[in-house]
């Protein structure tokens, strides 16, 4: 009888753990309030970068972006502006390229270096080698922004989504979602619009 009990408990545990397998489903990944994982990813200058390296930062503007997506390209100038505005205030931009470079060779390290040089990126442009970081964040496309705030427990996700509400024309933007979020955090206030959506290019994985 005891043996049957043990076996059925084991079976139950195995059964439940079968559903605990990480998937790239849209429903997994961080929500606002979660503590985001740190990472150690290679930058375009060959050095490894982690959030831990930024001792003085108050938080981070993590942006999953790439060379090849037209929406990401449309936002490049604005991403540079975000870093210029907020790095000195304690919220640097950390750009991460999440695509599989076999599927998208236009996003490989050489291409990343070239783009960063020609546009004058002022922030790290890291490769998510092995594609292990973006699924943990739950990024599903480029560009996809996660604003993190340094807390005692770690880097808390405070905003997820788009950069602003007009990919086409920066001068016609009504809501600067990321700026509003970071401004609120710098003011010691809560972010009012915590989740927004925009069209982007799906992150490329090898099938």
């Amino acid at each position: 009888m005891k043996l049957i009990k043990i076996i059925s408990v084991c079976a139950l545990v195995l059964f439940i753990s079968a559903f605990a397998i990480k998937s790239d489903d849209v429903s997994t990944g961080y929500e606002v309030g979660d503590i985001a994982t740190d990472f150690k990813l290679m930058n375009i200058d060959g050095k490894m970068v982690s959030l831990l390296d930024y001792k003085e930062a108050k938080g981070f503007i993590v942006i999953f972006t790439c060379n090849t997506c037209p929406y990401a390209v449309a936002y490049e100038d604005r991403i540079i502006e975000l870093d210029k505005k907020y790095a000195s205030k304690g919220y640097p931009v950390i750009a991460i390229m999440p695509n599989n470079t076999d599927v998208k060779p236009g996003d490989n390290m050489d291409a990343m270096k070239a783009r960063a040089a020609s546009k004058g990126f002022t922030f790290p442009y890291l490769m998510d080698e092995g594609q292990e970081i973006y699924p943990q964040y739950g990024a599903t496309k480029t560009p996809h922004v996660y604003v993190l705030q340094k807390r005692k427990q770690g880097n808390e996700v405070k905003y997820i989504g788009a950069i602003d509400d007009n990919y086409k024309d920066a001068s016609l933007v009504n809501s600067k979602y990321v700026e509003n979020a970071v401004d609120a955090l710098l003011d010691g206030k809560e972010v009012t619009e915590t989740n927004t959506r925009a069209i982007g290019c799906s992150i490329k994985v090898k099938k």
């Binding site: 509400d165 007009n166 024309d169 016609l172 809501s175 979602y177 959506r197 925009a198 069209i199």
Partner: peptide
Amino acid sequence: TDMNTWIPKVNKD
């Protein structure tokens, strides 16, 4: 361009 408004109208998820 106001994608945040219409994306959820196509489907909330």
